[in-house]
């Protein structure tokens, strides 16, 4: 149920994100979800795409520093308090979250949120017992 996120290092300069978006478009790569963490000095782009291997190669060939990160895509009830209940459960189970961001698309009344945990493996071991539904990689890339 691990999902591969494409993580890219970006310099903080005007037009850089547009170049990235164009690069992906030209190579027929579709963005499923994205988030940018930025500081005054640099940014880290995190992407969920339809074709991870291709995206990694495209970035590498274009000279970017790129890495693949294991994340978990979790289904969240699309109602007020839906995310809060999931976070409570994870918190009570003692898992710490590095960051999270939401999917652009929804699946039948559910929202999908990407979680980056400190210890992904530990979360995966018990996630089914917590009553939380994680999507498979195939489901996510095909969304």
């Amino acid at each position: 149920m691990k999902v591969k996120q494409v993580s890219v290092f970006l310099e903080n300069r005007a037009g850089r994100m547009a170049e990235v978006a164009r690069l992906l478009g030209e190579n027929d790569i579709n963005i499923r979800a994205l988030s940018i963490a930025d500081t005054a000095n640099f940014g880290i782009l995190r992407l969920i795409v339809n074709d991870v291997v291709r995206a990694e190669n495209v970035f590498r060939e274009a000279g970017f520093t790129v890495d693949l990160t294991d994340v978990i895509a979790i289904e969240v009830p699309d109602t007020p308090g839906g995310l809060a209940s999931i976070l409570d459960t994870l918190n009570q189970a003692g898992f710490s979250i590095e960051y999270l961001y939401a999917f652009v698309e929804k699946s039948a009344g559910k929202a999908v949120v990407v979680f980056r945990f400190e210890d992904t493996e530990a979360v995966l071991k018990v996630i089914n017992t917590l009553g939380i539904r994680a999507l498979t990689a195939e489901q996510v890339y095909a969304m």
């Binding site: 290092f9 880290i44 890495d67 590095e98 980056r116």
Partner: peptide, 18 residues
């Protein structure tokens, strides 16, 4: 330059490097 070896998807780790 940030290379594959010192890159991280977490801001905190890159800030640590700086």
């Amino acid at each position: 330059e940030v290379c594959r070896e010192n890159f991280s998807d977490e801001v905190r780790k890159l800030e640590d490097l700086r």
